[in-house]
Computed example of a mutant assay.
Amino acid sequence: MPTNIDKFSDIRPYNDQEIQPAIKRVINSEEFMDAILSFRFPKLSKYLGFALKPLLRRYFLYKWGSIDSIDKMQKVVGVYMQHMIDSTTTKFTYSGLDKLDPEQNYLFVSNHRDIAMDPSFVNWALFSENFHTVRIAIGDNLLSKPFVSDLMRMNKSFIVRRSVTGVREMMKSLSTLSDFICTSLKSDSSIWIAQKEGRAKDGFDKTDPAIIKMFYVNGKKQKIPFDEYIKSLNIVPVAVSYELDPCDQQKARELYELSESGQYNKSQFEDIESIVSGIIGQKGHVHVAFGKPLSGGFENAEQVAEEIDAQIYRNYFLHPSNLIAAQQDVDNLSAQDIAAFKARIQAIPPELQETVLKMYANPVGHFTG
């Protein structure tokens, strides 16, 4: 990074010099140790956590102690990623990269189903075809724990500040974010960002025009025409589809409670639990479909959002789970697929089953609509 004032220091991913200090902070974090122990050893941690923590710290020092660069961190993540794909998916496929240039930087605007896995699968597809991996946008609502922020920024994530209040602070934050995205695309990195704030818990993928307006803040400041600036960003819509959503029941619980009582209160580690569930849960077949770069002809943010949506709907890969839930083309599916999905639904609490079915069925409506 430059030796002068780093205007993106509060939001950008860590650089090589910052990796080891961040690793040490994570390993020394009591909350990180508590989180790992509660997930890995839920029963033992209640009684023997004090004894397990020193052992866990030694383990992480052994595994991470020699990591001193972004490249080394990416290689470590790559090993975990390969293990995750082997153990939690039946198949991983992708399409559309043959139409893109590995030497070009792109702004990948993706549908959003899983906090960590969406950009991870996009990155794995890119890596498999010798593209550079992306910088990942992540909301600061997920970074309430300092160790989570460190972990994310070690892995090429940058921060979208959603918690700022006041018009002046919000505009300053949007301007910095827009500038950072443009600067990254012009220099050394592609970008991944979700099409809207938060996951599509109901299965409806819809781009928020506010995201497009944020992109243009930097262009507007430079008095570049909207269409010209949008075209310069090389926006590529991306559709990530999971045959099985490891967090389907958690999402349905939130939607159910919101519909019943009008409110839903997250537990302390719920976002972290969702990240872990998404990583270790069974996903079946996962497909990542890359669309075509937006070529121009847009008058406003709404038109850009509509084109992104159109490509995502068109390219979304429909799995047997989607078709069974929507009761479409079921005759062409295997009895084994039908029985397995019905068994999954039956294992879900009765009050949540209809919500989960709609979650899987909704993409079919997009596809056929």
Rank of each mutant, 00 (worst) to 15 (best):
M1V: 14
I11T: 08
P13I: 04
E18A: 12
Q20H: 13
E30T: 12
D34Y: 10
A35Q: 07
F41A: 12
P42F: 04
K46Y: 07
G49S: 04
F60E: 08
W64E: 08
S66T: 15
S66N: 15
I70G: 07
D71I: 10
M73I: 06
V77I: 14
V77M: 13
G78W: 02
Y80G: 13
M81E: 09
M84Q: 13
S87Q: 13
K91N: 15
K91W: 05
D98I: 08
L100E: 02
P102M: 00
Q104H: 12
F108T: 00
F108D: 03
N111H: 09
H112S: 00
D114F: 02
S120T: 12
V122W: 01
L126N: 03
R135W: 08
D140M: 01
N141E: 07
S144K: 15
K145H: 10
K145T: 09
D150T: 10
D150I: 05
N155F: 03
I159K: 08
I159S: 05
V164M: 08
T165W: 09
S173V: 00
L174V: 05
T176K: 14
D179Q: 13
I181P: 00
T183A: 14
S184R: 05
K186G: 14
W192E: 02
I193G: 06
K196N: 12
G203N: 05
G203V: 00
D205K: 01
F215G: 06
G219I: 03
F226A: 04
Y229H: 11
K231F: 07
S232N: 10
L233M: 10
I235V: 12
A239L: 04
V240P: 06
E260L: 10
E270G: 00
D271K: 03
E273A: 12
S277C: 10
I280Q: 13
G281M: 01
H285I: 07
V288P: 02
A289M: 08
E299T: 14
N300V: 03
A301G: 04
E306Y: 05
E306K: 13
N315C: 09
F317T: 12
P320T: 05
D329F: 15
V330S: 11
A339L: 11
K342S: 12
A343Y: 03
A343Q: 13
Q346R: 14
L352D: 02
E354F: 09
E354A: 13
T355D: 06
V356C: 09
L357N: 10
M359N: 11
Y360D: 02
A361K: 06
H366R: 15
F367I: 06
F367G: 05
T368M: 15
G369D: 13
G369A: 11
